[in-house]
Design a protein around this nucleic acid. Structure first.
Lengths: 261, 261
DNA sequence: TCAATAGTGTCTATTAGACAGTATACA
DNA sequence: TGTATACTGTCTAATAGACACTATTGA
């Protein structure tokens, strides 16, 4: 390793000699380390209900119990936490480009019986037309489960019930001030479908004309010229979401569901 | 260990025999593990400016560079991530009960030259009257640094500039729809002081009567009967924050800083 | 023609924001 | 009495929400 002249300006990181020495002699096992996982709260609209993807654990601990999909970090493969989340998501759903957002990180000595553990939870929204795994099929180890309240019927492994509740609450909260709901719909959708999605998740009726006005004013939705949804009624204009994925912010001037008291 | 009768109902976790065996033979070093840290973005109002606490690193890597306060998890001591954050906070500021909220978690193979590393970042707000470390004193290893834009003047270690920027943005965003700003003020404050705090952080003038009306309507502020701030002007009513720490949500019916376009 | 849903218009109550006015302390 | 800041009132424009109306298709 070449030595550096004494009074050259201190290089910015990486790389003065002293630090190089430190790094080559650094003991990676100096501190005990926790187990680090990435878990996913994956939402989709299936059969007119908000559902979440669960997997049945095939290994200990909590063997046989339902859990959120996830797994340990792969240090030689993952370039970031989001990378790891995307990898897990793809393995579970084959969806390549969903809406993905970091939810929160949970850690403690008892949440996993094996070890002090940390899990970084993400939440993802899958467009309705990209859901491949059908609810109610005989897949043994994965299924979609409807969300009721802020949870699901089966008793989840680890602290996954808590994580799921946080995910549901985050989804509902963001829906009141962002356009995040579009990521549950296909590329082209009608405003009625969009409103229905909001109503389904928020469990609340919204006023049609207010909803439409705010969608218009947001500037994030583009009518698809000439493309209409047909039925035994007046045809509906199809729209596409025009914003960036994470730009759902800035949305409604007032919340679309604000109530008087 | 007592054996369990074969057809007793399966106990809920923890504890069937098979899983116990699994756990006692489990190899904790089966997966390579990342280094896990907790870092803090600690804000305070000092000399009429938003400032953030920095420490100068005494050890490699990035020895001598300024960084956010933080440190490695202590597995035998910390009962949760928030616990670890509170411990670090107390070590740095001696403040026992600040506003503390998880910000985000960052991880990757290159953000720390030692190892694949993960840091769970928290952000904290310190009341003005509990700031002990003065800006500009000769403390060698810690100082308050004014926030300009979304960062600070010195070049921070690791990816701390990014974390700080996320913290500043989170603070500004929450200020537009919550009362979070009160946690930067002492227990008793006037509405003018509160408004001034908002203006300082948002870098924007707010209308007095609108601001007061919304403070009143929020129901989170209680006038302190008979307690006034005196000066060479009409005395100002002192108020206290009445909500729970995290209840700042639900606050303004409209954002207090929403602009027309 | 009917049923069904798409889409628009009108009215009202609320309120943010602008701005000016009044109140009350100390000097 | 002057000055500084606290606090309140008034006006206007914007808009959410309620609700009713019109539009347009297939059956």
């Amino acid at each position: 390793m070449p030595s550096m002249p004494k009074n050259s300006p201190a290089p910015t990181h990486p790389g003065n000699d002293e630090e190089s020495t430190f790094l080559t002699t650094y003991d990676r096992e100096r501190y005990p380390k926790p187990l680090v996982m990435v878990d996913l709260v994956i939402f989709a609209l299936i059969e007119d209900a908000l559902q979440v993807l669960l997997i049945q654990r095939g290994e200990h601990p909590f063997k046989g119990r339902w859990a959120l999909p996830g797994g340990a970090l792969r240090l030689n493969q993952d370039r970031s936490l989001e990378d790891a989340a995307r990898r897990e998501l793809q393995e579970e759903t084959s969806v390549t480009s969903p809406y993905l957002e970091q939810l929160a990180t949970y850690g403690g000595p008892d949440r996993d019986p094996r070890d002090w553990s940390v899990t970084v939870a993400y939440f993802a929204l899958i467009p309705r037309d990209q859901v491949t795994l059908e609810a109610g099929t005989d897949a043994q180890d994965a299924r979609w489960e409807p969300v009721t309240g802020t949870g699901v019927e089966p008793d989840l492994a680890f602290d996954h019930a808590r994580i799921l509740a946080d995910g549901v609450n985050r989804l509902r909260a963001k829906l009141t001030y962002t356009a995040i709901g579009v990521h549950l719909l296909p590329e082209a959708f009608t405003l009625s479908e969009l409103q229905h999605t909001f109503e389904l998740i928020l469990q609340e009726k919204l006023d049609k004309s207010s909803f439409r006005q705010r969608v218009r004013q947001s500037g994030f939705f583009r009518p698809l010229a000439g493309r209409m949804r047909k039925g035994s009624n007046r045809p509906a204009q199809l729209y596409a979401f025009d914003g960036r994925r994470d730009e759902a912010h800035l949305f409604f001037p007032r919340s679309p569901v604000r109530k008087r008291d």
